[in-house]
């Protein structure tokens, strides 16, 4: 190993699977994942709300688990499987969580919705349930809805959980 005055590089190559497709970019090392997605890949569903890891509007799936893409370097996503809200539907067929949000009118202005939907996808994948209303509200504490439209969001999640418990 050669010892330079300063280790590392100021730009970094990032290769990741994004919504099922292999993507590569070289970006400044300080680039956040949400900016790689929005500005380099044109995937604008993940939004920057608070930019301080509180609101969850930037939530994406990182190897299947929900993370806040404003609090992750693009470089950390190298080799990862990233999914954004754009990658959920199968053609014209909505993902079941999207369908439940539509059915229960679980959105108002829509700004928090992509992050909220992905947080729910992650929750249902990791927690076999059955879920109580309390469970759902606590599990979504990392996603803020500034319209305060929580009731219908919780209803949508409980309906999904109820259907899978029955099914």
């Amino acid at each position: 190993m050669s010892i330079d005055a300063r280790p590392g590089t100021t730009t970094v190559a990032v290769s990741a699977t994004v919504n099922g497709r292999p993507e590569s970019r070289r970006v400044p090392a300080r680039t956040l994942l949400v900016h790689l997605l929005r500005e380099e890949f044109g995937l604008t569903a993940a939004t920057v709300g608070c930019d301080t890891s509180s609101c969850g509007a930037c939530t994406v799936l990182f190897d299947g688990r929900s993370v806040k893409s404003c609090t992750l370097l693009a470089a950390q996503a190298d080799g990862a499987d990233i999914r954004t809200a754009e990658g959920l539907a199968d053609g014209d067929r909505l993902h079941p969580v999207q369908e439940a949000f539509r059915e229960h009118h679980a959105l108002q202005c829509g700004f928090c919705t992509p992050g909220m939907v992905l947080a729910v996808v992650s929750l249902l994948a990791e927690n076999p349930g059955p879920l109580t209303e309390h469970d759902v509200r606590h599990a979504l504490k990392g996603n803020l809805c500034r319209c305060t439209g929580y009731h219908n969001i919780v209803r949508a999640v409980l309906a999904l959980d109820g259907a899978r418990q029955a099914g």
Binding site: M1, I3, R6, P7, G8, T9, T10, V12, P28, A29, R30, T31, L32, H35, D51, T52, L73, A75, D78
Partner: peptide
């Protein structure tokens, strides 16, 4: 908000990470 410009290195494994810590310390 984005961090100030940084250098970045991804350690291959623990051995390399410890070698780099020894060579560069708090840098």
């Amino acid at each position: 908000m984005i961090p100030a410009s940084v250098h970045y290195h991804r350690a291959r494994d623990l051995t390399e990470a410890l070698e780099l810590r020894q060579a560069y310390g708090d840098q």
